[in-house]
Simulated scan of single mutants.
Amino acid sequence: MAQVDQGVRENVYPQATNPLLRTLSQIAISAVTPIAAVLVALAFGALLLWLNGFNGSDVVTVMIFGSFQDMRSFGEILLKATPLILIGAGLCVAFRCSIWNIGAEGQLYVGAIAATLVGTSFDGLSVWVHAPLVMLAGALAGAAWAGIAGYLKVRFQASEIVTTIMLNYIAIIMTSYLVTGPMRDASAAYPQSARLVREAWTPRIVSDMRLHIGILIAVVLAVALYIFLQRSSRGFALRVVGLNPHAARYAGMDVRRNVMIAICISGALAGLAGAFEVAGVTHRLYQNISPGYGYEGIAVALLANNNPLAAILSGGLFAVLRSGSEVLQITSQVPQVLVLVIQGIVILSVVAFAKLRDILRIVA
Rank of each mutant, 00 (worst) to 15 (best):
F353D: 07
S98C: 04
Q343N: 12
V351I: 15
H283K: 09
V281S: 06
A43D: 01
V129S: 04
I148C: 08
N244P: 05
L229S: 07
T82V: 03
I170Q: 04
I261D: 09
C264F: 00
V206C: 03
G7N: 12
I113H: 08
A237K: 14
A200H: 12
G280P: 00
S193L: 10
P14G: 00
L78I: 02
V40A: 10
A270T: 08
I87Q: 05
E199T: 15
L167Q: 09
R249V: 08
A248N: 13
S176L: 03
F122Q: 12
V220W: 04
G344C: 05
L338A: 07
L309V: 12
G267V: 08
K80F: 03
G119V: 15
V206H: 11
R72T: 13
A158S: 13
F54C: 10
P191A: 11
D5A: 14
S73K: 12
M63S: 09
N18W: 02
L317C: 10
R96T: 11
T163I: 12
L285Y: 02
S126N: 12
A158N: 03
A16H: 01
A189M: 13
L313N: 06
V339M: 02
V255D: 09
N101Q: 09
F74R: 01
R239S: 10
I330Y: 05
T116V: 12
A94G: 06
L221R: 05
G297F: 01
S193R: 09
L51C: 08
A319T: 00
I27Q: 07
N305D: 15
L221D: 04
L42H: 02
H246Q: 15
K80V: 05
P132L: 06
G235V: 07
S73I: 08
L21G: 15
A237N: 11
R155W: 11
I64N: 05
M63R: 14
V134D: 05
A139M: 03
V341Q: 13
V220H: 02
A89Y: 09
G297P: 02
R22A: 13
A251R: 10
A137I: 01
N101E: 09
F95K: 03
V341S: 12
L221C: 04
A36Q: 00
P34F: 02
Q287F: 05
T164S: 15
